[in-house]
Design a protein around this nucleic acid. Structure first.
Lengths: 190, 190, 190, 190
DNA sequence: GATGAATGAGTGTTCATTCAT
DNA sequence: CATGAATGAACACTCATTCAT
């Protein structure tokens, strides 16, 4: 038996991201993605059940990567503020070096497909980080507030800052990120 | 001669919002919108040059409404924190009572159509609010930070909190909003 | 009772000719013609039963004009060759000074609408000319050949020469026309 | 993988010709052609880039066929008059046995699509014939007249005679064609 | 008489997916 | 496994015509 070709798999992944970035979610048709990936539309269906599966698994793959890069060198023995700051910069680094991936997730999250994602599978990559926050609350370093509300001030600002649509007047650099982190920390710290 | 029918105009507006909320931006076709509005697809083109015009003008209309409801009873003689708090709650009220409108703008902002909007026309409705922030910076009440970064902590959290996709575990109430405002204020205040 | 407005009538005629010349028969829609004529599409239906009637009556009007300008100063006492030559040049003059009208008839004649024309109404304007040919045959000046075949050498060459599609390499002038007449006469004379 | 089906290609060609003959150029829609060819409208786009490509390539195909049938048994060692006569009859034969093809070219030539044809590709099939005319001029057998004017008397009459719209009173036969050839030759010979 | 609004039926084209090889 | 051909259904949009004023 021949084996599914990793190169084609990867090629479809990249083509999906590229096309969604170039022409938007709605205009990214299966045949265009296949052409971009230099495979036949029919081949796409060897690797994915349908269009939905292609888009969703591309999303999950990216989210997994983000999670993994945040976890790299993760050291939960540091003071909570340092962990947060470290993570904040890691997120910024990821977004800056993988802008197309990041933009894909933004577009995906606002599409109806997003409801098809198994959130638990993604959340497990962010679990250690969530535990740090819990610890921070217990240790009375972080405000004792519903997690979703905290998240809005911890995760979202990086996304918003990295999104060229929200921040079109600002040429983002590391200083901005450091400033924004201070603000985020002011928001959540007790 | 027949006269242009305000009811049809309005009906198209509501149908556009409803459909985008129900099935998402990408799946909202002209014919589905027309059917929802109970007019012929051809009639839609009496009121709008094309699909793009329908979507963009629906967006601008909503943004205008949001701006107007923020400006209602706007009193810039109050202390800055009070103005901010007042506005924060007004935004929350608007979002809660007009969730479909708000969700439409979220989806629109992440679509390629968003680049077609005349931003200046929208920004003028938010001008007074922006001046308050400027004043806050001058009076050394608010951190002297790039406006886009401040905006990320002032506007974005309400949107994120109101978005059921981001906050699916949280049944939002006014207490949450008050809490979040405190955090936002901690973030931006000097 | 208000009276139908000759200016609107004329305006529709000119708009029809212009549009067919500019964008072709197939792309000449009722609403475009109405817009070109600066009237409402509904107004068009005051003057014409439907689109077909508009196109056909525009054609007949032009054919009538051509016939009338051929008959002007028509003198059947002249020698037959002189009559033919005179007419040949008159046709050339008409075509040159009314190119859009002429081009309209060419497009119309090759459309299915052409079958709706009352040919007899048109032919009566060309009757005197036909009689000259009959006389020429009887007087053994013109070959005794079926009229349709003669027509192919008498009428068609002018049309073909005047048609920029057939004669795109040739910047037509009166000398060419004189040359062509000599050839046409050689073809039909005994 | 399925392989492109010559039968479908041919079927689309025939359907295009038939429909243009039956309902005219303007009324020949893609979906009607597809239905006539018994394929899906989508299939048509497997074989042709768009409607324009379908119509243009159908035209070029026919013109090529005409050229080839004129060139068959072409013998330029014969006297010029004989070559002309032979060609004249060949054209007549083609037109009579392929009337729908011929009528298609007539309609096409009067449509805006005609400007999209690569004329050079077509003219090469008629090249040998053009050289005979040049030779005739040099040998002082044919009048030394601009080629376009000669063409009007050599090519055009056959088309006009074969066109039922121009020759509706005449049931064309080979005698008529012989007569017409004599007249054409009278027109162009020195 | 004159008109812009209104529309069902149609336009050319692309879609996600399956078929046959 | 891999593919280009094939397609019914849908797309955004325009059509010729009629309606209501």
């Amino acid at each position: 038996m021949r084996v599914k070709d990793d190169i084609k798999q990867e090629s479809l992944f990249e083509a999906t991201v590229k096309l969604v970035n170039d022409v938007g979610f709605a205009a990214s048709s299966v045949s265009k993605i296949a052409k971009e990936a230099k495979v036949s539309p029919a081949t796409l269906y060897v690797y994915h059940k349908n269009k939905e599966d292609l888009l969703v698994s591309t999303y999950v793959e990216i989210k997994k990567n983000i999670g993994l890069s945040l976890l790299k060198d993760f050291d939960d023995s540091l003071p909570i503020r340092d962990i947060m700051r470290e993570t904040w910069h890691k997120m910024f680094d990821y977004v800056m070096t993988h802008r197309p991936y990041f933009q894909y997730t933004e577009q995906f999250a606002n599409s109806p497909y997003s409801e098809l994602v198994d959130q638990e599978e993604i959340e497990k990559y962010f679990e250690p980080f969530i535990q740090v926050i819990d610890r921070g609350i217990k240790e009375k370093i972080i405000k004792d507030v519903d997690f979703d509300i905290l998240a809005v001030f911890i995760f979202y600002p990086v996304l918003a800052l990295a999104n060229p649509k929200t921040c079109k007047n600002l040429d983002l650099n590391r200083d901005h990120i450091e400033t924004a982190f201070t603000m985020a920390w002011d928001a959540i710290k007790l």
